[in-house]
Amino acid sequence: MSAPERIPPRSVTSAELLAEGELTVRGRIRDASNAALFCRVALDGQEATCVYKPVAGERPLWDFPDGTLAGREVAAYEVSEATGWGLVPPTVLRDGPYGEGMCQVWVEANPETELLALVDGEEPGHGWKAVGFAEVGEGRTALLVHADDERLRRLAVLDAVINNADRKGGHLLPTADGRLYGIDHGVTFNVENKLRTLLWGWAGEALPPETVDVLKGLKDALGEGGALGVRLAELITQAEVDATHARVDALLTSGKHPEPSGQWPAIPWPPV
């Protein structure tokens, strides 16, 4: 009698693991502004660490409807995936131990990669882009700079598309394998211009040709019947989807990175 045929375990994608796996809370991330829980998720013999942010733990904001931040985090992931740049870790909306919430793959940052710095003088130096001057104590100021890095430039474009109101230094996660991820996208997709970021170094500069091609693809995907527009409408309001489409149009029309509007603080506080 022959031995029974072994059925190999099915391959599980990160999104499936997050959405369908058993979620076990291991601890709380204390410095998060909303409830953020460090978890393990397991499915069919595969495991990963992740962050789970239940809607019930969201703090009310005056300029965003209550209970919508988790959906905005997932919407940011969907736009990132549509660009092909993969700048946001896999993120899903799912039920968990404390109700519905956002679940995102945990990314371990490489502390040796320097993306932000404070420098003396008025020029950023080779390989860096100036953001602005910052007080550093005792009446001194220093020039805040970020790396002139193509990965950061793509992230700056993504932030302009999703209208990110809170791109801080601590939300930038470079990894040891050379990837860069952005996290914490709860305050995005507002219909009003709220772009606040540390990545102003390319403000007013022409968009790279590759970026223009990506934006054209987003425009099509957000248009009537487009897959991205349909998906976003499940996560944010139709008015917010339309505003996203309008921001993509505006970037294509100008052909340039946006500049601070002067009507809203351009840099988040605290910046890191």
Rank of each mutant, 00 (worst) to 15 (best):
L61Q: 11
E78Q: 14
P54T: 08
G67T: 06
Y77G: 00
Y77M: 02
A82D: 04
R59T: 15
E73W: 02
E47R: 14
E78G: 06
V74E: 15
T49V: 13
E73C: 08
F64A: 05
P54R: 01
P60Y: 02
A42H: 10
A82E: 05
G84P: 08
Y77N: 11
W62H: 12
V74F: 14
P54V: 04
P60L: 13
L69A: 14
R59V: 14
A76P: 03
S80F: 01
D44H: 09
G57L: 09
T49E: 14
G45I: 01
V74S: 09
Q46R: 14
A76G: 00
E78I: 08
R59A: 13
T68M: 01
C50V: 12
G57N: 13
W62P: 05
G71A: 10
Y52L: 13
P54F: 04
A75F: 06
E78H: 14
V41K: 08
A76F: 00
W62E: 13
V74W: 14
A48M: 14
E58Y: 02
R59W: 11
V51E: 01
C50E: 05
T83A: 09
E47D: 15
D66G: 06
E58Q: 07
G57T: 07
G84R: 03
A48H: 09
E58P: 06
E78W: 06
G71V: 10
T83F: 00
A75K: 01
P65E: 14
L69R: 05
Y52M: 08
L69V: 00
V51N: 04
V74I: 11
D63G: 06
F64V: 08
C50N: 00
D63E: 09
G67I: 02
P60C: 04
D44F: 04
R40G: 13
W62C: 09
A48I: 07
W62L: 13
A48W: 07
Y77T: 00
D63W: 00
E73A: 13
G84S: 13
L69P: 03
G45W: 01
A70P: 05
V51A: 10
V41S: 12
L61T: 07
T49N: 12
D63K: 02
W62A: 11
R59S: 15
R72W: 03
